[in-house]
Simulated scan of single mutants.
Amino acid sequence: MINTDPNSSDFNSYASIEELEAFAQARGITLPDNKESLLIKAMDYLNGINWVGKKAKLEQPLSFPRKDIVLDGYLLPSGVIPVQVVKAQCMLAIEAIAGDLLSSVRDAPIQSESIAGALSVTYAIDKSGFIPRYPAVISTLRGLVIGEGFSINCIAERG
């Protein structure tokens, strides 16, 4: 059973089935009958994301609502679940139609490496081992997540 009430102890979804249906209908996507399990799979994925801010209450079952989030220069009220998070859950639920979002082995194994004047790396052909990426989801969550994308931290000093 999907429960979208953040004040409930069994709160388990940001998006309701109705929101998922509206999201899919607007995009011409036909949903299967297992809508609840799709939302739960999407929620499992979202629970693994490193979010900015802190949980609004320590005992809350999900990551949102959160406090201390500044989004596009505005302080997000601590009791609010951003529409971007609901949309991301719907996007992931649709991705979950094709299969599991979080399988056990997701790294593409390297079959061989060599350095002889130039670097050569060969990856396994088995596509079941690749790490799934959801750039549209991460783009939707811009400003709400930590550590997505590529960055290098360094210190430059003049000698």
Rank of each mutant, 00 (worst) to 15 (best):
S8V: 01
E95M: 10
S104Q: 09
A136V: 09
S104W: 09
S128V: 10
R142D: 10
L101C: 01
M1G: 07
I2Q: 02
I81L: 03
L20E: 05
E36I: 04
K127Y: 10
D44H: 11
G147P: 14
E59D: 12
D5L: 03
D107T: 10
A56P: 00
K35Y: 04
A93V: 07
I69L: 09
E36H: 07
V105Q: 14
K57L: 11
I94W: 05
E18A: 15
K87C: 04
L62K: 09
I131Y: 15
D100G: 02
N7D: 14
V86M: 08
L75C: 05
I17E: 06
A108D: 10
G48P: 00
P32A: 02
V145H: 05
I69N: 03
D100Y: 03
L31I: 04
K35W: 02
E95K: 15
E36T: 13
N34R: 14
L46E: 01
N7G: 09
G73C: 07
L141Q: 02
F130S: 14
A93W: 08
L141T: 01
E113Y: 13
E19P: 05
I138C: 02
L119W: 03
P132C: 03
T30D: 14
P109E: 11
V121S: 03
V121L: 15
G117W: 02
V137C: 10
Y45I: 01
I131H: 15
K67G: 00
L31Y: 08
R158G: 10
Y134V: 03
L75T: 14
V85F: 07
R142V: 04
G73R: 01
E148V: 11
P61T: 01
M91E: 06
I125K: 13
F64A: 14
